[in-house]
């Protein structure tokens, strides 16, 4: 059923244009992968701390001292469109 499809909503969130055949395939792939990882739901993991890292001290913080910046030509040299020092991006239709 079309309303059960998850790919269109995800593709919109992830800003991915998909061809119709591609979307069908991904729908199937996602479904089988998600089915596979369902196994995790059966484990009792109550009370397990999911924290990824143990908290560190302030010794790994950066001192507030300025360093070198990039020239525009280096930082934005691969940009599709520039105007002088500015990056140019497409306009937003709704706000035009």
């Amino acid at each position: 059923m079309a309303e059960d499809r998850i790919v269109p909503k995800l593709a919109a969130l992830a800003r991915l244009r998909l061809e119709p055949g591609e979307a069908d395939r991904l729908e199937r792939d996602l479904s089988s992968i998600l089915h596979h990882v369902e196994r995790l739901q059966s484990l009792d993991m109550q009370g397990v701390d999911a924290a990824l890292w143990t908290a560190g001290g302030e010794e790994r913080l950066r001192p507030d001292e300025p360093g070198e910046s990039l020239a525009v030509e280096d930082g934005l040299g691969c940009a599709a469109a520039r105007d002088g020092r500015y990056l140019i991006v497409p306009g937003m239709r709704e706000e035009a």
Binding site: D64, L70, V72, G75, L76
Partner: peptide
């Protein structure tokens, strides 16, 4: 602050566009 939150580019208002940029 003197520098940005996550890099050592200057935190300074009024510089020419895109002069405080880094990776």
């Amino acid at each position: 602050t003197r520098t940005k939150m996550f890099c050592s580019c200057r935190n300074e208002f009024g510089a020419p566009p895109n002069s405080h940029i880094c990776p």
